[in-house]
Design a protein around this nucleic acid. Structure first.
Lengths: 360, 360
DNA sequence: CTGAAAGCGCTTACAG
DNA sequence: CTGAAAGCGCTTACAG
């Protein structure tokens, strides 16, 4: 008997603490509807009332209960970040593995686009072959109001399935015809680096592209070619090759092929930092010095190029800004689901580090 | 008039779709309380009833509304991942910047510990100096049921403040006296790499430690010293120095000091991959070849060492497992808030790549 | 072992 | 411009 009683009065921390909309209403001498309208920034509220309520909120340290809000408004106030990966197994960190750096750096920018917003972010790494028919948990469990899909590792089938869910979605890092998208200006980026190499007196250029299967490889190649076409001084020789894999090992093998075919570039451009590091590994083994013997410019800018030996000049694609702008796009899509599809291309800049030398 | 009508019947997707607990109850011919008990795995339900309900759930494709659950149970079913960072400004990726790789890799392991669980994950990068008195948004907005704090960039003040919030918390990556924690076995790891260098015939060892201000630097040094003490063959010379900064630039400057003091190790140990890359940069500039002239072993294992030129042998600290185990600890803490404080140390292994040579 | 009822903390028409 | 009331979809004592 006594014991039962004891259990009954054992309140939890939250029970005691929880300030609700009713407490605020009471303190401000208004109804809870009014408080709700203030919280949701209704223009129908008299300024005087608004401030009265705001003060009460402040004084009481009131924080709206997110579950209650969500329950009535049928929203979760959460956005999903889907990182597309090659596989979900244990990472080896070896240079034949995917780096996932792009998605991490982009996702650092996302919260910046969410400031002054109630949205939280739920992350999921997702791999299509392994999950085959499954949808991401984020979606299956109805946890999100909107979705970022980061990276290119998905096809039309997957896109359609997501589309059918009706969740506002923005694709980050590549073009596509299903959703809004935002991506770096690939062609302009490669144009930039190629031009710089030409202007610094390089005569034998080699472009090591990403795999042909990647839709982006065309844009990249175009940037390379257009820079050469529009340059005053023409290179004596130029080569272009697609790596077989989009990682260090892919770059390693590609330059090896070039090298063993007897080609000797004085400057190399890489499709991204991972491939670049693979190239550098091969050159190191051949005792070729960068930049003394061969200059290099990579593409993306990441911890990989910033920390590499030597520090790698690269094209910065402004990943944080991409993440931030992706938010704006998604927020608009959520607010106006039927609006016209949006595509956004972010310009790039060249970052100079230690892998390019001026040749006369 | 007509228009008003049109608006009224414009249901949203969810309105039409939403299968609720009532639909399930009806289909299974039970009350919604029973359905709820089944969902929550109550042992009080007859097996037969349970299967009946489970079938109805299956057939209807019912997914519990997470907000409704949270509202009644006073839970959010979300865990927070707090990544402690040095600053929140735009990342440069240069080698004088913090890499945040540890927290990323750990957070990849976390979902593995959450399989068969309803918990989602909310991430936040948080910086103490910049946010001074503020608490992480995750906490201020009552969004989480539990918290992972990743990384060491916080002091007792912050820990106490978090403690006062009463949120179950586990610290990942360093010891501390406020919360449960899980970390790699630093001493054992350094012992491992030092021993390997000794066994491969190196006579002049240099340990480049993390900054003295880091609590972990002592454990690391102990591992180094103990390996030497317990080795059959003693090194001819040994040096140990703390980098001033925990990044590439710190490693660069440290080895520069060693070098300019005329010391010439034949093997170097680095406190982590970032510091290691800084060391390698300096050696590259000095035209010292790794491993031919100097062998190196780093600590952590990350994309940085896996992609480095040459590929860096390092101590793998099993970050994914750390993340997974951290979940178990946190889940236990949530279930039993008053239980004894838990600390867990994960053993490390040596991963051999291309930076160590056998000397005779 | 299961059902009826209250209540979690909000938002949203609706009325005035 | 503001209040009273209904309802969102669950869980949790409580009763039987």
């Amino acid at each position: 008997m006594l014991k039962t009683h004891a259990i009954k009065i054992q309140f939890r921390f939250e029970d005691i603490m929880a300030v609700t909309i009713i407490d605020v209403a009471r303190r401000a001498n208004v109804s809870k509807s009014t408080v709700s309208l203030v919280i949701n920034n209704s223009p129908a509220i008299k300024l005087e009332t608004k401030y009265k309520v705001l003060r009460a909120i402040e004084e009481l340290g009131y924080v709206p209960n997110i579950n209650a809000r969500g329950l009535t408004s049928r929203k979760t106030n959460i956005l999903g970040v889907l990182t597309m990966v090659e596989n979900l197994s244990q990472k080896s960190y070896n240079f034949d593995s995917d780096t996932e750096i792009f998605s991490y750096d982009v996702s650092i920018g996302i919260p910046k686009g969410l400031v002054n917003t109630d949205f939280g972010l739920l992350n999921e790494r997702f791999c299509i072959p392994e999950n085959s028919n499954d949808l991401p948990l984020l979606i299956k469990n109805n946890r999100i109001d909107g979705l970022f899909i980061i990276g290119g590792l998905f096809g039309d089938d997957f896109a359609k399935k997501i589309k059918d869910c009706g969740i506002p979605t923005v694709v980050v890092g590549r073009k596509n015809e299903f959703f809004d998208y935002i991506t770096a200006d690939l062609e302009q980026g490669v144009f930039l680096s190629t031009t710089h190499l030409l202007e610094t007196g390089h005569k034998k250029l080699c472009y090591i592209n990403c795999p042909v299967t990647f839709s982006t490889s065309v844009d990249r190649y175009n940037g390379f070619q257009k820079a050469i076409d529009s340059s005053e001084v023409k290179p004596e020789e130029k080569w272009s090759i697609n790596a077989e894999h989009n990682n260090g090992a892919g770059g390693y093998q590609a330059i090896k092929d070039i090298w063993e075919a007897g080609k000797r570039p004085d400057a190399i451009l890489a499709a991204n930092d991972s491939i670049a590091l693979g190239i550098m590994r091969y050159l190191y083994e051949q005792k070729v010095r960068i930049p003394e013997d061969i200059s290099m410019i990579s593409y993306e800018n990441s911890i990989l190029s910033g920390y590499s030996v030597p520090a790698l000049s690269t094209v910065d694609i402004n990943k944080e800004l991409i993440g931030e702008e992706a938010c704006r796009i998604l927020l608009n899509r959520i607010a106006r689901p039927k609006s016209k599809r949006v595509s956004m291309v972010i310009p790039t800049t060249l970052v100079h580090r230690d892998s390019v030398i001026v040749r006369s």
